[in-house]
Design a protein around this nucleic acid. Structure first.
Lengths: 122, 122
DNA sequence: GTGAATTATCGTATATTTGCAATGAATTTT
DNA sequence: AAAATTCATTGCAAATATACGATAATTCAC
């Protein structure tokens, strides 16, 4: 790097400059951005609840990796973990699920209703 | 690493072992997994078409970064680029948009209709 | 108490993502 | 033709994501 060139360290935090529904929708989309996590959610939505081992049986990856994906979905709020040692019971977080559902619906309806009131936009 | 420990190089390709609608949905979700890309899509869906510069004006990031996000949306198929040098015109890819919309709708309806026929599942 | 079962976490390796500045290519303006 | 405009691409740095094996913590069975 040449003398006097003050390289500005880039900020790689995607959410830093975004707010509201845009940020929220992106958060849920990101959590759904891996096929394993989609499959977990599909599986869960049909089973009422599942243990970690149930997912491990179904997914083509190591137990530790499955656990990591479960953590991401939990962090996004889409699922809830209920400790029943030594097992952990997972289920859909219905409240958040409905919120995400609504955000996606509203988002995709944009093209159909171009002039509707968008109170949730950033 | 100890002698005789054959470390298996992990494969970090998320799509390797997944197929069908699960993979497809994750693809669109991932493309939507950044607030800037959500905002681009929102913006586009209300403007019929936009040039790159329109997005740069609106988004809190450098032109090169915006260009990168546009490329990701284009690679996912959600938008179409139309070269009109020196400018580039972007618009929604309606066919893919409707496909993504349908996939998300079907996905989120899972909880409401637990016993419906799921012909698109992996 | 010992051992099996279950699962999160840690350590590590690799790949991808995010961001910016700088550059190059193509067109338009002057 | 020279300069300005527009935008993708390249090069680089930092952060995050993905994956695995190993380990630790916890309960249950014996």
């Amino acid at each position: 790097m040449p003398e006097g060139n003050f390289y500005k360290k880039p900020c790689t935090n995607p959410n830093k400059n975004f707010r509201g529904a845009t940020r929220e929708l992106a958060r849920y989309a990101k959590a759904m951005g891996h096929p394993a996590r989609i499959k977990i959610l599909r599986f869960l939505s049909q089973a009422e609840f599942c243990y970690t081992g149930d997912f491990v049986e179904v997914l083509p990856m190591a137990q530790s990796t499955v656990s990591q994906h479960l953590k991401e979905l939990k962090d996004a709020g889409l699922i809830i973990a209920n400790e029943q040692p030594p097992r952990v019971k997972y289920c859909i977080n219905h409240e958040v699920w409905e919120r995400a559902k609504w955000l996606f619906y509203e988002f995709f309806d944009m093209l159909d209703k171009p002039d509707q009131d968008r109170t949730t936009e950033q």
